[in-house]
Amino acid sequence: MTSSVTVRLRAMAMGFDLTLDNAPSDAAAKSAIAAFHRELLAADDLFSLFRPETPMARLASGAATLDDMPVEVIEVLRLCESYRVATGGAFDANRPDGVIDPTGIVKTWAVSRATTHLGDVPSWLVSASGDVVAHGGERRIGIADPAVKGDPAGSKVLGVAVIGGEFAAIATSGSAQVADHIWDPVTGEPARHFLQASVAGQDLVECDVWATAICAGGAPVVERAVGAGLEVLIVASGRSQGGYEAFQSAGWPSAVGEPPEVGA
């Protein structure tokens, strides 16, 4: 007997798809979903920079100081700082104007907290607008085609990776709508390091941070990420004859066999 329930939750102006398999009861599933959603909404209440009354918005505007901040905000800011050091500065929540903006990790931080409410559910999958985490059984995760704008669900994908077993999470960064449209006509390359970077690991926040850092800092950051024990798939550039040139770390959890290797 297996049961599966999938819901789409909204929080932080994003969609979160939550799949619960084999929950002990409908009531248990329902209560897990509610607790999960509450955690996301609570994060929004703490960190939204679009709502001037949140602690983070008050800190950013100077209306409040660090001493006024709830423990969760301090935790996230500490996390940002430790990842700034770990990524050699490629991930940096400090804006030049002196404001600390942790928005980049709040989503995955909130999801990670929310998943602690899924303890009664033996197998689950969370798809958080492009960042994915799973537990209790293998799930097939498509790597989006960077040319696809908006929600890539249902589109063709560049490959499939497995999480929920050896790896728990995959996060992908890249393809900012504006930057992606800036091409260097001399080299024919996009005017950024990579089109897209996907990172697989055990911790969703860590994957998210490194994916962002790799897009911001390029090849030197890739080496750091691999050194930190993460697996990386980089979509480097489009090919004139179609498809993409990509780089894959040795332990990338590919589910669909190896695509053709090309000479360096």
Partner: peptide, 9 residues
């Protein structure tokens, strides 16, 4: 140290 691949959608 990375393998270079060609990926198609």
């Amino acid at each position: 140290e990375f393998k270079k691949r060609v990926l198609e959608a």
